[in-house]
C-alpha cells in the first residue's frame, strides 16, 4: 500500500508504469510491437503531441488553458509550406514560423493577462482567427511541393534517433530543467497555485502568464515545422482537433487544470501513452476506429481514479494533521506553563 501510494503520488512514475505495462501486454499478444523499430516509430509519431503538450503545460501550470494550439500549429505549417515552396531558405522559413507561434501566443497572453478575457474564450477566438488565416493564406488548397531537402530532415539520424525526435527531446529536457531548477520556472507554479500570493511577494504575475502563452504558441509552431518535415505536405485540416488531444495528454500525465501541479515530463509521457494506445491497435488486430473509444475510456478511468485517490490522500493527511495538532497544542501548553 505504501509503495503504491508513493507511486501514485509521483504521476510521472505511475504513467511510466502504465506505459510499460501497456506495452508489455500488447507485446504478449503480438511480439512485433516490442521491437526497437516499432517502439522508435511510436516515439516518432508521438513527437508532435509531445511538443504541444510541453508547451501547453506552461499554460496549464499558471491555471489558464490554450485551445488555440491546433490552429497555431496548422497556420505555422501553412506558413512554412508557403515560404518553402516560394523558394525561401529553410532557416529563414523556420524562423518566420517560430515568429508566427510567438505572435499567436503573445496575442493570447495579452488578452488573458491584461484585458482579463477568460482564457478559454480568448483562445477559442484565436483558434477561429488563426484557422481562418490559414485557409485564406493557402486559398483552401493543400501545399504539396515541399522541397526535398526539407522533407529529408525527417530521415536525418544522430546517434540512431531522427532529427524530430531530437528536437522533441531537447525541448522536453530544456523545459523540464527550466521549470525544475530555475527561480523563474518556479514562478509558473506559483502563479497557478495562488496568484494573489504570488503577486504579494513580487512575482510579475501578468508577465508570467503572457510568457506561458508565448511558450505554448512557440511549441505549436515547432510542432507545425515538424509536421511539415514528417509529412511532407500540408493539408487544410492540419492541427485541427489537436487542442483537445493535447489537453488530454497533459491531464493524463498529471498536469492539473487547477494550476500549480504537474510536470512537463508527465505531460510528455501522457502524449506518448495516448500515441501508444493508438499505434498498438494494429498489433492487437483491433480496427483503428476503436482508438477514440479506448483513449476516452482510459482518460476517464485514470482521471477519476486519480481524483478519488487525491481526496483519499487529503483525508488521511487531515487525520494526521489532527493528531499532530493535538500534540502540538499539548506542547504549547507545557511551554507556557
Amino acid at each position: 500500500m505504501n509503495l503504491l501510494s508513493k507511486i501514485m503520488k509521483q504521476r510521472e512514475i505511475s504513467i511510466v508504469v502504465l506505459i510499460v505495462v501497456f506495452i508489455a501486454i500488447v507485446g504478449m499478444v503480438n511480439s512485433k510491437f516490442v521491437t526497437g523499430k516499432s517502439l522508435l516509430l511510436l516515439v516518432e509519431s508521438a513527437i508532435i503531441l509531445l511538443i504541444l503538450a510541453v508547451g501547453q503545460s506552461f499554460v496549464l501550470l499558471t491555471r489558464e488553458i490554450d485551445v488555440s494550439v491546433g490552429a497555431t500549429m496548422g497556420l505555422s505549417a501553412a506558413v512554412c509550406g508557403l515560404l518553402l515552396t516560394s523558394g525561401v531558405s529553410g532557416w529563414v522559413s523556420a524562423l518566420a514560423v517560430l515568429a508566427v507561434g510567438v505572435l499567436a501566443g503573445l496575442f493570447n497572453g495579452l488578452g488573458v493577462a491584461y484585458l482579463r478575457i477568460p482564457a478559454i474564450i480568448m483562445t477559442l477566438g484565436t483558434l477561429g482567427i488563426l484557422r481562418g488565416f490559414m485557409i485564406i493564406l493557402t486559398g483552401g488548397k493543400w501545399i504539396e511541393d515541399i522541397p526535398n531537402y526539407f522533407k529529408k530532415l525527417s530521415g536525418t539520424d544522430f546517434i540512431g534517433l531522427p532529427l524530430p525526435v531530437w528536437i522533441g527531446l531537447v525541448i522536453l529536457v530544456a523545459a523540464y530543467l527550466v521549470l525544475r531548477l530555475t527561480k523563474f520556472g518556479r514562478y509558473f507554479y506559483a502563479v497557478g497555485d495562488n496568484a494573489d500570493g504570488a503577486r504579494l511577494i513580487g512575482i510579475p504575475v501578468s508577465k508570467v502568464r503572457v510568457l506561458a502563452f508565448v511558450l505554448s504558441g512557440l511549441s505549436a509552431s515547432v510542432a507545425g515545422l515538424i509536421f511539415v518535415i514528417n509529412i511532407g505536405f500540408v493539408p487544410n485540416q492540419t492541427g485541427s482537433g489537436m487542442e483537445l488531444q493535447v489537453i488530454a495528454a497533459a491531464v493524463l500525465g498529471g498536469v492539473s487544470l487547477n494550476g500549480g501541479l504537474g510536470t512537463v515530463l508527465g505531460a510528455g509521457l501522457g502524449a506518448i501513452f495516448l500515441t501508444a494506445i493508438n499505434s498498438s491497435l494494429i498489433y492487437l488486430k483491433i480496427p483503428a476506429y476503436w482508438n477514440n473509444a479506448i483513449s476516452g475510456f482510459l482518460l476517464l478511468v485514470i482521471v477519476i481514479s486519480d481524483s478519488r485517490f487525491q481526496s483519499f490522500l487529503a483525508n488521511s493527511q487531515f487525520k494526521k494533521k489532527e493528531t499532530a495538532e493535538a500534540e502540538g497544542g499539548g506542547q504549547g501548553d507545557e511551554a507556557t506553563l
Partner: peptide
C-alpha cells in the same frame, strides 16, 4: 474532476 476534463474524456469515448 473538472467538467472540461470529464467531457473531454467522454468526447473521445462517445465519438469512439
Amino acid at each position: 474532476v473538472q467538467p472540461l476534463v470529464v467531457t473531454l474524456g467522454t468526447m473521445f469515448l462517445f465519438s469512439g
